[in-house]
Amino acid sequence: MKYRMNGGDLWPFPEIERLRSQINQILDEDSGVCSTGLFDRSASPRLDVVETDDAILVACDLPGVAADDIELDVVNNVLTIRGEKRPRNGVDENYKNYRRETWYGSFQRTISLPESIDADNVSAELTNGVLSIHIAKREEHKPKRIGIKVK
């Protein structure tokens, strides 16, 4: 069998191009879940963590999750976000489901926080499907500016 490249019948590149654009689209799709390890029983929603001078701020994407279904705790400087993302209401036998890219079920994220945080001073709010957590640092760890006197 003669293998013809370059314009021949077996020219593979259109197929490869198609495959590449499909893969790119999959990568651009936002499933909302960052990673699920091999042994994870729960989904891992995406997180952002930013440290400022006086606090650690955490943002977590939880679209469609009710505030009552989210549990948040800080134990030994480990922050745990866990909960349940419930499927849509009114699932009916007569409904025809065509496609679903979203996920449902339990989720959990844990992050280790530095020693400097004040576990009693944590606040959280859920806005537009984003959970924002504000973890204050203890007073003695906040940077203090020392004024220099000029004599």
């Binding site: 651009d28 499933s31 890219e101 996920w103």
Partner: peptide
Amino acid sequence: PRIYPAYEVWES
């Protein structure tokens, strides 16, 4: 950068 939001579609 664009994000294709995940969706679900069903018919009643």
